[in-house]
Design a protein around this nucleic acid. Sequence first.
DNA 1: TCTTTTGGTATCGATTCGAAACATAATTAA
DNA 2: TTAATTATGTTTCGAATCGATACCAAAAGA
Lengths: 185, 185
Amino acid sequence: MPDNLIFEFIERIGYVIRTEWRKALLEYDLQPVHLDVLRYLAACNRYSDTPQGVAEYLEITKGTISQSIKQLETKGFVEKQADASDRRMVHLHLTEKAQALLDKLTPPPGFDDAMRNFSGQEEAALLGNLRDILAQWQIARKRQRFGVCHTCRHYQSGGAGTGQCGLTGEGLSAEDSQKICREFT
Amino acid sequence: MPDNLIFEFIERIGYVIRTEWRKALLEYDLQPVHLDVLRYLAACNRYSDTPQGVAEYLEITKGTISQSIKQLETKGFVEKQADASDRRMVHLHLTEKAQALLDKLTPPPGFDDAMRNFSGQEEAALLGNLRDILAQWQIARKRQRFGVCHTCRHYQSGGAGTGQCGLTGEGLSAEDSQKICREFT
DNA sequence: TCTTTTGGTATCGATTCGAAACATAATTAA
DNA sequence: TTAATTATGTTTCGAATCGATACCAAAAGA
């Protein structure tokens, strides 16, 4: 059962990642879920930086995530900004304090050292395999899909990495195009 | 930053694993930590199937794990057995109900499908890489080491997969030798 | 206009988790 | 032997997660 072994190792490494994070977060008086939220906000685009977007990505109910965001706001890691056109919506922005925390904890202490013996070729192969597993699994799960903007069906290239979203009509910078979008199709 | 990308993918797959488990466990009225405990007990040997062993492996305080084990016992997934020689110690055994749950959830639904396109060669390479990362990281972390019995310094081979533990002097079956031990050195 | 949908918040109960205190048994030192 | 220390496990406390549910307000549709 080689499939099972691969699963076991990914799961165990994942567990160690969470353990390292949990211990590191104690100093900041934060819970694991808070880091998950911050990591998502750092990676998502401006259509997806709302409580609902966080809830869908983390597959947690919005009522629950509302509480976690409240904590993050109180502690100065997140700022809320009302949407200009839709008064129901709230956009969430990371503070510098949050960015510093992410820089420190991604990847967690020691992980990079563990990769030191890998060649560039091995890394590329490993990365490709992991990407495949995740992509195939996402398809099998048939869940709400999140994807990187510039690989979306709505994305219209405008050259030099910039583009336009066919769904909203808005222009997208090169940076925008690299981020995760909840409207991804 | 290819290291970072590899980390990101392992972390994300790990997150999806936990999400699938969390949803599946709702039906059984169990929390994620309960499955972690059951998985450890299924993999550890008779020197390590105690509350303390669980706590060390999961890197959670023993007071916390004591509560989780209480739940598992009440719900019929675990049975406690007093140690014959040390009256402080308690050994934890999985019930058939627990074994059935593990069989169903490991790996979680859909994961095997995601591996379908891999060749035997690719799988072997991937497995080797993951094994390396975990091993190197464990060394870098310098934490309490857990390891498979037959790779331990105390293990003395007796042929045909069986052996003897140089620490306790006890005989070890072929099955024992494949399990995780907290006395691993 | 009326209804439905969507985004967000608030509250409840069960549970996790770290921390600390505690009880008991085993081990070590005097 | 006796006393101090260490190890295993339980209990209790407070803060937080999480699912479930109800609720409010704004937007979208009929």
